[in-house]
């Protein structure tokens, strides 16, 4: 199977994630869009591992670490979102903008 197909899929996923980050204004939706980008990187790592026949399995190991870190970050991120909601009753990024320049 041509590896380029997989890479184009992951590039698409990455770009959709960027769109979501720029176009969305709800913090949780922005978070989900970033998860798309992380998954694009994961797909790349796994398919390159297969393509290159890495004996060290570094591609798969890298993907595992990305998944772990993403979970840890999400825990902290949701704690921040809940904190903000408790204080302001909104999680919209537009409204959470007391400070400019």
């Amino acid at each position: 199977m041509p590896v380029a197909w997989v890479l184009i899929l992951s590039s698409f996923l990455f770009s959709v994630g960027i769109y979501g980050v720029l176009a969305r204004r709800n913090a949780v939706l922005v978070l989900m869009s970033i998860e798309l980008m992380l998954n694009a990187a994961n797909i790349n790592f796994v398919v390159f591992n297969l393509l290159l026949h890495s004996i060290s399995y570094i591609g798969q190991v890298f993907a595992l670490f990305i998944i772990t870190i993403a979970a840890a970050e999400l825990g902290v991120g949701l704690a921040i979102v809940i904190l903000i909601f408790r204080n302001r009753s909104t999680v919209s990024i537009d409204e959470v903008s007391l400070m400019k320049w």
Partner: peptide, 14 residues
């Protein structure tokens, strides 16, 4: 920024 950096790193690995 981490996500963008990781995508770049995956290409470098590739």
């Amino acid at each position: 920024s981490t996500a963008v950096m990781l995508f770049g790193m995956s290409l470098i690995y590739g």
